[in-house]
């Protein structure tokens, strides 16, 4: 099922990637080539097969509840684009 140009723009928006009209067109062609490859999956009947989400069928390991981390804010924020008063600054959030 070929992707429409609108779908390409929609997923670019969902992924928060700005895309120009010409990029969207080029991307549409490439994605449709790739989905041509992906569609080969549909040839095999998998209705009776359980999906495999992890490489090993193991159970989640649980950590004991306890505080093991200390304040490293100044180190972490030394690589931040914009901080003030210990806060990460972003363009105004409107609810």
């Amino acid at each position: 099922m070929p992707l429409s140009l609108d779908e390409v723009k929609r997923i670019a928006y969902l992924a928060r990637i700005e895309i120009s009209e010409s990029e969207a067109l080029r991307t549409q062609g490439q994605l449709n080539d790739i989905f041509g490859l992906i569609e080969r999956m549909q040839a095999v009947d998998t209705s009776a097969v359980e999906p495999m989400t992890h490489a090993q069928g193991r159970a989640l390991r649980l950590r004991e509840d306890g505080v093991t981390e200390s304040d490293q804010k100044s180190l972490f924020q030394s690589v931040a684009p914009q901080v003030e008063e210990g806060l990460y600054l972003v363009p105004k959030v409107i609810e």
Binding site: L14, L31, I34, V44, V49
Partner: peptide, 25 residues
């Protein structure tokens, strides 16, 4: 973009779950 598409509403089963099943095979 491929990943966003295959997980998006309406395509998850056809792509993502299908691929996970093939993974098991």
């Amino acid at each position: 973009l491929i990943g966003t598409y295959v997980l998006s509403h309406g395509y998850y089963d056809a792509y993502y779950l299908k691929a996970q099943r093939i993974r098991r095979l």
